[in-house]
Design a protein around this nucleic acid. Structure first.
Lengths: 218, 218
DNA sequence: GGCCGGATCAACCAATCGGTTGATCCGGGG
DNA sequence: CCCCGGATCAACCGATTGGTTGATCCGGCC
């Protein structure tokens, strides 16, 4: 039974060192290479494929400083940009917003773990993802289930879009202009957003949305 | 010349593993113990002091999930809560807001490094801090210098207080009530805040303040 | 004493926001 | 066909915010 060959992708040297050390303790897992952002990960996957040394699993963060982010890279990998069959991608990150989780899952990530997870959980996730199964951190799984279970409090895609623009500092008229809709439509969506979040003004909506990880920094 | 004895404090096992591995490569540095939050760090320092095995340097994150945060722990350590002479504290974190840096510096941290720093920079910082010198990441030093150099764009303490309340979702009247001032005073401060941040509405002020690390999550 | 920054307060008015009511259209599902 | 959710739009009015002008007081500094 050959080892699971893993590519580590994280912009923090400390984290890569920690993962290297942690995975070295896992039987059946070998770190074959590393990259500091999504672009470098794609290049490294291509390089290893060309050498006939394909990777079995990509373990990757979402945010990579100024480099290509993990969700974009996941989409590219799943689309075969670095060779086929594309290896599964396991996200390991500090970010647990709904938007982050959904973006990664939609991009094709096989799993989503948080960096505060103990080694044993990460080991299980690595084995599951490499075996083609889904691997979600308990908190992440709970959030997705909560999202499905409480649709009345979930914002619609359009509502989320407007909330994100609101949080960048745009007023109603500017949001309307950007989305080619009327200001009345923006106000209607805001009424719905406030009701769903249980608030009565825009700054409170932003605060609650940030607190609940519905949005985060742009 | 005995090794510098280091206590690692970080809530993420991955990061602790990475630091352990990284510091193992530094000549003259030994990781003697670890803790997952500020409270555990204080207890561990006390325990090692009682064993006659004092720590030379605490390498600590700021945010520790639900445990005691790094700035509070730093203040306690410097106040002698875990024994004297208190060891220097080197902060290693992802957070680089003005408020975070100032809080840690005011609490008595000997240095402030960011987690994206390469190993050699971390090594230099460890050696400097253990030797009683200041160790600041280049970006952090630049922020502090910028802060001193551009006082006209720096918010006054009262302005910052109002901005923070604004970001929690309070309207002018609620802020006024909380601070026992008039709504006119709140509006006057907001005028000043908007001018300093170069914006013309409250959501933009919050967004810019977050972007510039003037405020962050409450 | 004068100057400055910071904090406080008021009045006034225009602009924007929030709330309400009402409506239409579309697509999907039963 | 009906129902529902989602998206879009309008009108109206009250509430809040933003902008402007003006003022006072305090503490620190020269």
């Amino acid at each position: 039974m050959p080892d699971i060959r893993v590519l580590l992708v994280d912009d923090h040297p400390v984290v890569r060192a920690g993962l290297r050390a942690m995975l070295a303790d896992f039987d059946g897992v070998t770190v074959v290479s590393e990259a500091a952002d999504g672009g470098a990960a794609l290049a490294e996957l291509s390089r290893l494929n060309a050498l006939g040394e394909p990777v079995d699993l990509v373990l990757m963060d979402l945010q990579m400083g100024r480099g290509m982010d993990g969700a974009t890279a996941t989409g590219r990998i799943k689309a075969g940009a670095a060779g086929t069959p594309p290896p599964p991608v396991l996200i390991l990150t500090t970010y647990d917003t709904d938007a982050d989780i959904l973006a990664a899952v939609e991009a094709g990530a096989a799993g989503y773990m948080l960096k505060d997870a103990p080694p044993e959980q990460i080991r299980q996730a690595v084995l599951s993802a490499a075996a083609g199964q889904t691997a979600l951190a308990p908190g992440v799984a709970a959030r997705l289930m909560g999202h499905i279970r409480n649709p009345e409090t979930a914002l619609s895609p359009r509502e989320l879009q407007i909330l994100e623009l609101l949080a960048t500092g745009l007023g109603n008229r500017a949001i309307a202009r950007q989305l080619f809709i009327s200001e009345a439509t923006v106000k209607t969506h805001l009424v719905h957003i406030y009701a769903k979040l249980g608030v009565d003004n825009r700054t409170a909506a932003i605060a609650v949305a940030r607190q609940r990880r519905i949005i985060r920094d742009s």
